Amino acid sequence: VTLFVASYDYEARTEDDLSFHKGEKFQILNSSEGDWWEARSLTTGETGYIPSNYVAPV
Rank of each mutant, 00 (worst) to 15 (best):
43 T>A: 10
18 L>I: 10
4 F>M: 10
8 Y>F: 12
12 A>K: 08
1 V>Y: 12
9 D>C: 11
3 L>F: 12
46 E>Q: 14
42 L>V: 08
48 G>R: 02
30 N>T: 08
42 L>D: 04
14 T>C: 15
16 D>T: 14
8 Y>R: 11
3 L>P: 05
41 S>M: 05
42 L>W: 05
10 Y>F: 09
3 L>Y: 13
8 Y>E: 11
56 A>N: 10
41 S>D: 02
19 S>P: 05
25 K>Y: 15
4 F>L: 06
22 K>D: 03
43 T>M: 09
11 E>Q: 12
54 Y>T: 06
5 V>K: 05
28 I>K: 03
48 G>N: 01
12 A>L: 01
31 S>F: 15
33 E>F: 12
44 T>G: 03
13 R>G: 09
55 V>S: 02
57 P>I: 08
50 I>G: 01
38 E>I: 15
5 V>L: 06
58 V>G: 05
49 Y>A: 04
52 S>M: 09
10 Y>G: 01
3 L>I: 15
45 G>P: 00
53 N>V: 08
55 V>L: 13
48 G>Y: 04
24 E>G: 01
7 S>P: 04
55 V>P: 03
2 T>H: 12
8 Y>N: 08
52 S>C: 13
51 P>D: 06
28 I>R: 03
39 A>P: 01
58 V>D: 10
50 I>V: 09
43 T>Y: 08
28 I>A: 02
6 A>I: 03
49 Y>H: 07
33 E>N: 15
52 S>T: 07
18 L>E: 00
31 S>N: 13
25 K>M: 15
24 E>I: 02
28 I>P: 02
46 E>C: 14
18 L>Y: 04
26 F>P: 00
50 I>A: 01
37 W>I: 06
56 A>I: 14
28 I>T: 01
39 A>W: 00
33 E>W: 10
33 E>V: 10
28 I>V: 09
39 A>D: 01
54 Y>F: 11
1 V>F: 13
10 Y>R: 02
47 T>C: 10
38 E>G: 04
42 L>P: 02
6 A>V: 03
7 S>I: 15
41 S>I: 06
58 V>W: 10
33 E>D: 15
52 S>L: 05
5 V>E: 13
46 E>I: 10
41 S>Y: 02
53 N>D: 10
4 F>E: 03
54 Y>G: 07
23 G>E: 03
38 E>Y: 15
21 H>L: 12
3 L>S: 06
17 D>R: 15
